[in-house]
Design a protein around this nucleic acid. Structure first.
Length: 637
RNA sequence: GCCGACGUAGCUCAGCCGGUAGAGCAGCUGAUUCGUAAUCAGCAGGCCAGCGGUUCGAAUCCGCUCGUCGGCUCCA
């Protein structure tokens, strides 16, 4: 007799231990058809596992979010099976589920996307066979025996704890796997292979280069179609394309990974920084600036020579060695150390929009997202131990306020001590506790990344999610326990003794370049009024009206708007089209009517046209919208 | 750096198995003077990323270099 309790509290008794499938069938055929796995007493297991004792049971159907994960793992197996059929010498390694699908790392000859149709066809065959999937449990010794000729799997088995090891079988295919899996391969209804790349075994550059093949799978063909459509849409937002089309910036072979900002790009840049300065002034920051090239000895003193050398650029000047700064901190230390400080001055919040250069590997460069030269909106906060918590909360509030202005969401992560690091265990513990206290006081849930901290201290990372659903680390708050010591920084306390200040190192936007790239994709190139390179386009309807348009333009310009007159002898339709494609938020058509009545006709980027506005009403509305940094494209509701 | 794909006019792209380059848009010139997403016509524009090789002949085939893009974090 087995008693089963369902999530809604209802209980059912069974004569002999039923499998999940039998339980589902007892409820309805439709339910049984859509069940992929189940949770028995909180444990996820296969549907065909017999439930041999009283248990809480939750059936997982294709409608549950975790069902997708389970099925995608099966999809990875189906792909692996197809590849083994087609490529005799392929050796499997790992094949996990990732955010939008799955991948499998396989040791095989390099393949390209041209090979996908063949593999997909074979996968389709396997899916249509609806091969049952069975779990088999063996001892570690047996597992090793089984994998005698599979070096990767053997290595994986060896790393597993002693005890039972599970295999999953579907037809001729067997794979080492924790499971659970869907009942048969037919559940992998809609799938597509997406891309291929190289990957190292165990992510180690010194080990074998494997082929990683990415794919995705859904229960419904419609969902797959929708996802592929999303990828297309995301592609259209690509900031490299938009940046070039909107004449914001460019890249040149003469300086790989180092962006050139055009006049329009600089307008957006400056609008961002105007806002940044306003917020930082209000938050009690001062602004500083340090040199870009500094002597090598400084970097030895700071620890960068030892820990960051491979990412730095060097140069010789007058027989002395210099380094191009990859970070602003050492320069900031010199400023702090150049005068005496009293405890009464603390905290000192010294910001710097610092231009740094980092030698990133050529293969990782990616538009504005990953560059070799960029500006950090850096700041160093010097304070006493007691101030840590409130200062961190203040930085987090500043981050929240600024991201909200751009309409961006974020999440927080705490990174702890990495292997390659400097400082004592006690110092690391103290610093990590300090960050944790700040995070707890701020009150937002956060994730912990063990071993992901900077070499000089633990950090809080702020991650933005972009239009492609990728998360980007933008803001960061790092407690630095090393530099104040290395530079022997001090302040005079109330006891008239010298004390060591605590320092945090923080950014809000992170890299201005990357942040701008994220904004371009976020807004799909349609910047809100306050950021737009050109805010107002004036389009005289014919040549006779051009002087009047210039007159209006002069007034707007004097009022502080960024304007452009299009007085070419072109059709109005063309001018409107071009202004619209250039994403100008306010398109004014100037005709005889406007001239006579002294009014304006405005087209906004939502496609709406408002006629008969007085100049005053227009300017009031526009300035209100811009000074409050509103994000809506519909400016005249 | 490593794996794969790619590099043809300012942009988007065509150019099959090698016979010395083509379209649209943009640009320039002229005509058109126009009410909310492309007026018409003409002209001009290229060392086919660079270097080397194969060949009677290379944008096309091969090699190297440079650059761009997708990955190289997700651990049965």
């Amino acid at each position: 007799m087995v008693n089963i309790t369902f999530p809604d509290g209802i209980q059912k008794s069974y004569e002999k231990p039923p499998t999940g499938l039998e339980v589902a069938q007892g409820i309805s055929e439709g339910l049984a058809r859509n069940c992929v796995a189940m949770e028995v007493n909180g444990q996820r297991v296969d549907l065909n596992t017999p439930i041999d004792e009283d248990a809480d049971l939750r059936l997982i159907t294709t409608r549950d979010p975790e069902a997708l994960e389970i099925m995608r793992h099966t999809a990875a197996h189906v792909m692996a099976q197809a590849i083994l059929r087609l490529y005799k010498n392929a050796r499997l390694t790992i094949g996990p589920v990732v955010e939008d699908g799955f991948y499998y790392d396989i040791d095989m000859a390099p393949i390209s996307e041209d090979d996908f149709p063949r593999i997909e066809a074979e996968m389709k065959k396997i899916v249509s066979e609806k091969t049952p999937i069975r779990r088999r449990e063996v001892s570690k010794v047996e597992a090793k025996q089984f994998y005698l000729t599979e070096p990767y799997k053997l290595e994986m088995v060896s790393d597993l704890p002693d005890g039972t090891i599970s295999f999953y079988e579907q037809g001729e295919f067997t794979d080492l796997c924790r499971g659970p899996h869907v009942p048969h391969t037919g559940f992998v209804r809609a799938f597509k292979l997406l891309k291929t790349s190289g990957a190292y075994w165990r992510a180690d550059q010194n080990r074998e280069q494997l082929q990683r093949i990415y794919g995705t799978a859904f229960f419904d063909k419609k969902d797959l179609k929708q996802y592929l459509h999303f990828l297309e849409e995301a592609k259209k937002r690509n900031h490299r394309k938009l940046g070039e089309a909107l004449d914001l910036f460019s890249f040149h072979d003469e300086a790989p990974g180092m962006p050139f900002f055009h006049a329009r790009g600089m307008v957006v840049w400056n609008a961002i920084l105007d806002y940044w300065r306003e917020e930082h002034r209000n938050a009690g920051y001062v602004e500083t600036k340090t040199p870009i090239i500094l002597r090598k000895e400084l970097w030895e003193q700071s620890g960068h020579w030892e820990n960051y050398r491979e990412n730095m650029y060097f140069t010789d000047i007058d027989e002395a060695e210099y380094a191009v700064k990859p970070m602003n901190c050492p320069g900031g230390m010199l400023i702090y150390g150049s005068t005496r400080h009293s405890y009464r001055e603390l905290p000192i919040r010294a910001a710097e929009i610092g231009l740094v250069h980092r030698h990133e590997l050529s293969g990782v460069l990616s538009g504005l997202f990953r560059v070799r030269a960029f500006h950090q909106d850096d700041a160093h906060i010097f304070m006493t131990q007691e101030m840590i918590e409130t200062e961190i909360v203040d930085v987090l509030r500043l981050v929240e306020r600024m991201y909200a202005t751009f309409g961006l969401g974020f999440h927080l992560e705490l990174s702890t001590r990495p292997e390659k690091s400097i400082g004592t265990d006690e110092a690391w513990e103290m610093a990590t506790d300090g960050l944790r206290a700040g995070l707890d006081a701020y009150g937002m849930a956060y994730q912990i990344n063990e071993g992901d901290g900077a070499f000089y201290g633990p950090k809080i990372d702020v991650h933005i999610k972009d239009a492609l659903n990728r998360t980007w680390q933008c803001g960061t708050i790092q407690l630095d326990m090393s530099l104040p010591d290395r530079f022997d920084l001090g302040y005079i306390g109330p006891d008239n003794e010298k004390h060591r200040p605590v320092m945090i190192h923080r950014t809000v936007l992170g890299s201005i370049e990357r942040f701008l790239g994220i904004l371009i994709e976020h807004f799909a190139g349609k910047f809100p009024l306050w950021l737009a390179p050109v805010q107002v386009a004036l389009l005289p309807i014919n040549d006779d009206l051009a002087p009047y348009a210039e007159e209006v333009n002069a007034k707007f310009r004097a009022a502080g708007l960024r304007t452009a007159v299009d007085s070419r002898t072109e059709s109005l339709n063309r001018k409107v089209r071009e202004a619209q494609l250039a994403n100008v938020p306010l398109i004014l058509t100037i005709g005889a009517k406007e001239k006579e009545a002294g009014t304006l006709a405005v087209r906004t980027l939502d496609g709406k046209v408002t006629h008969g506005l007085t100049r005053e009403a227009f300017l009031n509305r526009v300035f209100d919208h811009a000074t409050h940094r509103r994000l809506e494209l519909a400016i005249f509701p």
